[in-house]
Simulated scan of single mutants.
Amino acid sequence: MTSQSPPPAFQNPPGYTFPSHRFNRVLRDSTKEPLVLVACGSFSPVTYLHLRMFEMARDHVRHNTNYEVVGGYLSPVSDQYKKAGLLAAQHRLTMCNLAAEQTSNWLMVDPWEAVQDYQRTAVVLDHFEHEVNTRLGGVTTVEGEQRPVRIMLLAGSDLIATMSEPGVWSENDLDHILGRYGTMIIERAGADMTQAIDSLARWRNNIVLIHQLIQNDVSSTKVRLFIRRGLSVRYLLPGPVVDYIETNGLYVDEGTPTSTPSGTLGAEKDKKSVDKDSREAGPSTSKSSS
Rank of each mutant, 00 (worst) to 15 (best):
H130C: 05
T162F: 09
T141I: 04
D175S: 06
A161F: 12
G138C: 04
T141V: 03
I160Y: 10
Q146K: 06
W169N: 01
D173E: 15
L154D: 11
I160V: 13
E145W: 13
N133D: 00
G138S: 04
L154A: 10
S157L: 08
D126S: 07
V142L: 12
M163C: 15
S170R: 14
L154C: 10
D158V: 07
E131P: 03
E145T: 04
G167S: 12
H127R: 04
V132L: 01
E131H: 05
F128S: 02
V139Q: 00
V142T: 13
R180F: 09
S164Q: 10
E143M: 13
M152D: 12
P148F: 00
S157N: 08
W169L: 04
L154E: 08
L159Q: 11
H127K: 05
V139Y: 00
D173R: 15
R135S: 03
G144I: 09
W169I: 02
A155V: 09
S157P: 13
T121Y: 06
G167D: 15
L159E: 09
D173T: 15
S170I: 10
G144K: 10
E143H: 10
N172M: 12
E165H: 14
T141E: 02
S157R: 08
S164F: 05
E143K: 12
G138R: 03
A155I: 07
T162C: 09
A155R: 08
G156C: 12
L159G: 11
E145R: 07
H127T: 06
L159Y: 10
L136A: 03
R147E: 01
T162S: 11
E131N: 06
S164M: 08
I151Q: 07
G167Y: 14
D175H: 04
S157F: 06
D126Y: 04
Q146Y: 03
M163Q: 13
L125P: 00
E171Y: 02
V142W: 04
M163E: 10
I177E: 04
V124H: 10
N172A: 14
N133T: 00
A161C: 15
T141N: 02
S170M: 12
T134P: 02
P166Q: 15
T121L: 06
F128H: 04
V142H: 08
A122N: 13
H176D: 15
A161N: 14
A122I: 11
D126P: 01
V168A: 09
L178C: 11
G156Y: 08
E171T: 07
N172E: 14
D158K: 07
S157E: 06
T141A: 02
S164W: 05
P166G: 11
D173W: 15
G167V: 13
D158I: 08
P166V: 15
G179P: 14
V132S: 01
I160A: 05
A161W: 07
T162K: 11
V124L: 12
H130I: 02
G156K: 09
A161L: 15
M163A: 14
T134M: 05
E129Q: 02
D126T: 06
N172F: 08
I160D: 03
T140D: 02
V123K: 05
G137M: 07
E165F: 15
N172D: 14
G137V: 05
V168C: 12
L159A: 13
S164E: 07
S170P: 09
A122G: 14
N172S: 14
E171H: 04
H130G: 06
L125R: 00
V142A: 11
G144F: 05
E145A: 05
L136H: 02
